[in-house]
């Protein structure tokens, strides 16, 4: 199997174009994420960003809970 792939891959003469293809690939993914993110609802975002704050773990409060 690897021999077959190797034979075909060995004929890739335009390997120098790889960085350009890779960059285009990235820009496409990046643009897609950007578009999707810009369409998100503000209320959803606000709710999600507050997830870590959705609890009270102050030392004093914890003391009250456990005593």
């Amino acid at each position: 199997m690897s021999k077959i792939v190797s034979q075909y891959a060995d004929q890739l003469s335009l390997i120098g174009i790889y960085p350009v293809i890779a960059l285009i690939l990235f820009m496409a993914v990046f643009a897609a994420v950007l578009v999707q993110v810009s369409m998100m609802e503000r209320a959803d975002l606000r709710e999600l960003s507050k997830l870590p704050l959705d609890m009270n773990d102050d030392p004093e409060t914890l003391n009250e809970q456990t005593h």
Partner: peptide, 29 residues
Amino acid sequence: MYYFMPKAANRPVYSYRLSIIHFWALIFL
């Protein structure tokens, strides 16, 4: 950083949108 900075500052992360772009772009690149 995304967990403990908001906790220490007691305010949500500045931009959740930016965090999504940050994540995917960073791991891809």
